[in-house]
Amino acid sequence: MLERMLRRIRREIDRRRLSDPQWQRMFEEDASGEVVSIDCETTGFDLRKDEIIYVSAIRVAGNRILTSSAFNALIRPESATMRADAIRVHQLRAVDVEAGRPMSEVLPELLDFIGGRPVVGYWIDYDVSMLDRCARRAFGFRLPNRRIEVSELYYELKYRKAPQGTRIDLSFNAIARDLGLRELPAHDAFNDALSAAEMYVQLTDMKARGRTIPRDRGADVATAIAH
């Protein structure tokens, strides 16, 4: 709660300080109802030092995931070195990202792609924080977009009325299993953004129809949905 308030205040400050009017529209939520699912791969997991090396963004319009117009960019890090543990996760090596473009070139295109749409993701705060740092340095503002966390949507449908002491599993795999989604090779920015988009359309639809996700028989339900 507090964090959200802080974020709103920061957004106001950023908006007033905005030097380049072309980013004004990011501060007004798009009326189309579209959202953008985002995922980044990074050199490591330190929010202050590590850099983005791959970013994927996929727009979702109504019930349609617009993969045909997805935004994908491989980025050459400026100073951070590739950390072995991160390389093991996303499998992008230093030689691979050499072919990437500089963030200074990619960022305006990405922000333009996102526009005033809410951003969606799994652990979206991490991805947005990474982008915040770049945007702040380049244009003096942090991403003002509303954030939609798919694990939160999932929590609401599955655990909101859970009795005290229920073991809560919000892992990516648990969500995918409950929703009957196929397993995509994970830690590929595009696949992760796509999975988050798939989770988003299904979870928001189930919420709109007043559906919940049964807790006790999670595994059975998964088989029933996915068979």
Binding site: R64, I65, L66, E198
Partner: peptide, 28 residues
């Protein structure tokens, strides 16, 4: 390729009607 989402009971195509897309089930 794009991906469409349909909820249970939702009509996707009606007999005799044209469509802008070919459909291939991904899940469900």
């Amino acid at each position: 390729l794009d991906i469409g989402y349909f909820h249970p009971g939702q009509k996707i195509l009606e007999k005799g009607a044209p469509a802008d897309h070919l459909h291939i089930v991904l899940k469900g």
